[in-house]
Design a protein around this nucleic acid. Structure first.
Lengths: 218, 218
DNA sequence: AACCATACGGAGGAAATTCCTCCACTTAGA
DNA sequence: TCTAAGTGGAGGAATTTCCTCCGTATGGTT
C-alpha cells in the first residue's frame, strides 16, 4: 500500500508477514495484561508460532517493544484521521477520537511502554511523520470545535492529550469497554462550555510525548 | 489510637513498628513504579532496612501485597470521612474526595493489586468495616449533592467509583499530581448537571470491588 | 511441475534473578 | 543493668528466562 519508509517488515514472504502481525498483536495483548516482562515464550505461544520465529523477527525484547509501539502509533493515525474525516463536525470528531483512544487502551499502553522506550529509542524516520499527522488532525479539530462553540475555550491540546491517555480500572467480570466508555462520556461532558475550570491549561511544550510515548526529540 | 482489631502489627516494639511502616511505604512506591514483581530486596533497600527485616514482618510477597492494600484502604477511609466532614457541602466533599483519590493514585494501585489479591484473599475482619465506612460516606455525599442540584442526577455511585480509579499517564518530567489534577477538574465539570449522558449508569452490584480491590465476598 | 530461498518449530544448555533461611550482633524498654 | 525483641546481610538453592541451532516445511517463481 504505502511504501513510505518501511521500518516495519515489508518484503517479507506472505506467511512471514502474517506471523509477524500475529506476534505483535499477541505481544500487545500480553503487555497490557501482564506487563512488559512476560516471557517471550508466552507471547509466541499466544501468537501460535514457535519461539524461534519470534526471535528471528524481533532479535530482542526491545525490538518487540518498538514493534508494538509502532503498530500502536499506526492505529492512532488511522483513528485520528478517520475521526476527522468522517464525522460531520469537529466536536463529534473529537468525541469519536477520544472514544477510540479508550478502546485502544492508549493510556495503559503508554504508561507501560514509555518508561522503557523513552531511554534508548530515537524516533525512526517514519514515526515523526505519523506523529505529525496525529497532531495535525487533533489540533485542527480542537481549534474548529472551539470556534464552533462546542468545546470550552479554556482547555488546550495537552488537556485533550491527557484525556486521550486516561485509563480506567475495570473489574475482571465487567466488559472491558464498558467502564472506560462511561468515563469517557463524563469527560466529554466536562469539555462542553461552562464555568471556568480552576487552574490553567498545561503548556503545549511536550504534546508529542503524549502522542507517541516512544520518542524523545522533536 | 483505635485498637479495632489489629490485623496490622500492633504490639510491636517502637522501632519495629516504624520499620514496618517504612517497608509498606517503600513497597507502595515501588509497586507503583515498577509493578508488583520488584525484587523484595529492592523494597528493603528503599525502606532502608535489611532484607531479613522485611521477611520477618512479611513472610512472603503476598503478605506484603496485603499490607499495602490494607494501608491504602486505611488512607481511603481517612480521605472519605475527612472530605465529608470538613467541606461545607456534599458537592465540595465529593470534589475533595476525587482529588484526593488522584493524589493517592488509587487507580494505578487498584489496577495492579486487584488481579493478584482478588484470588486468594478473603476480607480480613477489620477490612469489611473500613469498606463500609468509605461506602457510607460516599453514598451519603452523592445523594446529598444530587438533592442539592449540584450533581447530575443521571450518574450513579459506580460512576463516581470509576472516576475514583481513573489514572492518567504522566510524562516523567511533569510533576506527578499536575496532569492528574487537570483531568480531575475536567471530570468534575462533567459531573455538573447538564444534558443527559448517552447510555445508562452502571449497576451498583459490585461497588465494593472498586473501593477495596483486595476483597471478594460482601 | 519443479526448485530453492525463505521461513518454521521447539529442544535444551547457559546465564541471570530471585528467594528466603540462619545466626551473630544491636537496641528498646522496664 | 538485663533481656526479649529486633536487625542486617551473606550465600546456597531453585526457578525462570534467554536465545541459538538445525532439520523440516512451504511460498513464489520460472
Amino acid at each position: 500500500m504505502d511504501a513510505e519508509n518501511g521500518a516495519a517488515g515489508d518484503g517479507l514472504r506472505a506467511d512471514a508477514r502474517r506471523n509477524r502481525d500475529l506476534i505483535v498483536a499477541a505481544a500487545r495483548e500480553l503487555f497490557l495484561e501482564k506487563g512488559l516482562d512476560v516471557a517471550l515464550e508466552e507471547v509466541s505461544r499466544r501468537a501460535g508460532v514457535g519461539i524461534g520465529t519470534l526471535y528471528r523477527r524481533f532479535p530482542d525484547r526491545e525490538a518487540l517493544l518498538r514493534g508494538v509501539a509502532e503498530d500502536n502509533l499506526r492505529r492512532l493515525v488511522e483513528l485520528a484521521e478517520t475521526a476527522s474525516r468522517e464525522e460531520p463536525d469537529a466536536w463529534h470528531g473529537l468525541c469519536r477520537f477520544l472514544r477510540g483512544c479508550a478502546d485502544l487502551r492508549m493510556g495503559e499502553l503508554s504508561a507501560k511502554l514509555e518508561p522503557r522506550l523513552h531511554q534508548r529509542i530515537r524516533a525512526g524516520e517514519g514515526l515523526s511523520g505519523r506523529r505529525r499527522r496525529v497532531m495535525d488532525a487533533l489540533l485542527r479539530m480542537i481549534a474548529q470545535a472551539q470556534a464552533d462553540g462546542d468545546l470550552r475555550p479554556d482547555v488546550g491540546p495537552v488537556d485533550i492529550a491527557l484525556l486521550m491517555t486516561v485509563h480506567v480500572y475495570t473489574p475482571p467480570h465487567m466488559p472491558a469497554g464498558q467502564a472506560a466508555g462511561r468515563v469517557v462520556e463524563i469527560m466529554l461532558n466536562g469539555l462542553r462550555p461552562g464555568p471556568a475550570l480552576p487552574g490553567a491549561a498545561l503548556p503545549e511544550a511536550d504534546l508529542l510525548r503524549y502522542i507517541d510515548p516512544g520518542a524523545d526529540g522533536p
